[in-house]
Structure formats: C-alpha cells, structure tokens
C-alpha cells in the first residue's frame, strides 16, 4: 500500500504544470524515503529530477510498504489536479501492484471530498546516472529574475551564453537581427535573502544553452522564490528550484557546443 497525504495540492499542481509540456509521460518512483521522478525530454537534451522527501513537513502522512513505480501521463494528471482547490489536501493512493492511482481531494473545512482514479501506464524510460559533482560555479538568484532574463533574451535568439566570473554573471544573446546582454552583479545590500544574487565561484565558466529549454524550466518559477544555477565548463547546467517542506525540482540541460 502506498499513501501520501500532501498538505497543499497547489505544490503538486505547480510541479506538474511545470513538467507537462516537456515531459509527456513519467514514472513516479515511490519508496519509504519519498517520491522521485526522473524523465528526459523526447530529444534527450533536457532532464528533470524531482525529489519529495517523506520525512519533510509537506506530507501529513506518508506510507509506502514496498517500492512501486507509478507510470502517469502528466497531461492527464494536470487535468485531474485542476479539479482540486488550491487549499485542498491531496492524498495519493495506490496498491502494492497498482493499475490505478487514486487522488483524494479534501477541502479545508472537510465539507467536500472528491476522489478520482486514473489508469497507470507502463513507461519504458531510460534512467541516467547523474554523478554528485562539485560545480565550478553556483549562482543563486530570485526565480522571477531568471524567468525574466530567459524571456527577454529569447526574443532575439535561440541560445544564451552564461558567463560566470568573480564580479557576477552575464547572460548574452546574439541573433540575426540583434543582440542583448544582461549583467547581474552580486548583491550585498539587499535586505531579503530571496532577493539576493550570489555567485559561488571556484572557476569561471562560459557556456551556451538553448533558450527554448531554459524558458520551459522557468514554468517552475512559482514553486520557489529562488533558483540555483550550477555550472561547470562542458557539462550540463543544473537549474534547481527548492520546494519548501518537500525537497526540490531540478532540471539538467546539455550545453551547446561549437563544431
């Protein structure tokens, strides 16, 4: 038996909304330690990795008697979650050898309980081993700032060059019709921690990435006030959105290379 009671259905809604356009079907791997999801986009350029820890406060109850994999169409899951109120408590439930995933939405005042079942799918997905590495550069910035940068630069070109150095981080685009550059300096005088830009730099990095994917990742902006970009030369960038009281959602994107 698997049963996970999440205090805020809005968190699950935001997660699925941020994934469903790049990742059509995905396996939720459930174990006693929590729920993980790893999926690659159809072109094998971008990867998402979701971790929701069972011992965090976002789960009111969590039970997973044996490890199970729940293969779900994310478009369908998004439709089901739209049936929940943002303040509803959502319970996910499945048997040990499941064909069906059940969603139960409890309104805050417990006056309305709704239940939906969806059929599970067999999904053959290629799991990748992602080594734990120290990155040359980790940029922490407000998530809405990163969203704005990606949106602004995507008007002029297909790829952004991210240049991390000791003064800050530069985002540059060069298209056929024009070019643009946004410089972010490290902030020290900002009151709120979530408004700060910080750059932890071991080595400078200059790397180009497809804006189409970065813009898609920023659909997760509402999950977190801040976003962390981890970069090392010639390796995929990690775009991480911490999820309060649950864990995190990470996106990996392979760099563009010069031929």
């Amino acid at each position: 038996m698997f049963e996970a009671k999440m205090l805020q259905s809005s968190v699950l809604k935001k997660i699925i909304e941020s994934l469903k356009d790049l990742f059509a079907d995905a396996n939720f791997d459930c174990s006693s330690s929590g729920i993980t999801l790893q999926d690659m986009d159809s072109s094998h350029v971008a990867l998402c990795y979701l971790k929701l820890r069972s011992d965090e406060e976002g789960f009111e109850d969590y039970r997973c008697d044996r490890n199970i994999t729940l293969g779900v169409n994310l478009g369908l899951m998004s439709k089901i979650l739209k049936c929940a109120g943002n303040d509803d408590v959502v319970t996910l439930r499945a048997e040990d050898e499941p064909n069906i995933l059940t969603f139960i939405f409890d309104s805050k005042n417990s006056e309305r309980v709704s239940k939906y079942d969806i059929k599970l799918m067999e999904i053959d997905s290629e799991l990748l081993g992602i080594p734990d590495t120290d990155y040359s550069c980790v940029v922490k910035m407000p998530s809405h700032e990163f969203q704005r940068i990606c949106s602004n630069l995507s008007q002029l070109g297909d790829s952004v060059t991210i240049d991390c150095h000791k003064e800050g981080v530069d985002f540059k685009v060069a298209g056929e019709q024009g070019s643009g550059a946004i410089k972010l300096k490290q902030t020290t005088s900002v009151d709120k921690e979530e408004d700060q830009v910080t750059v932890q730099l071991n080595e400078p990095v200059t790397q180009s990435f497809a804006l189409k994917f970065l813009c898609a990742f920023t659909k997760a902006t509402s999950l977190s006030d801040t976003v962390n970009l981890s970069l090392t030369q010639d390796t995929p960038v990690v775009v991480e959105y911490p999820i309060a009281q649950h864990g995190y959602l990470r996106f990996y994107l392979a760099p563009k290379i010069e031929e």
């Binding site: 690659m40 990867l47 392979a254 290379i257």
Partner: peptide
C-alpha cells in the same frame, strides 16, 4: 557552428 549535444554524452544509462 553551434551543435546541441545530448545528455548521453555526459551521463551514463543506469
């Protein structure tokens, strides 16, 4: 010319 590498070039299948 800019090319887009795939993730397989960096991570191995498990």
């Amino acid at each position: 010319v800019e090319m887009q590498n795939q993730l397989f070039a960096y991570f191995t299948a498990t």
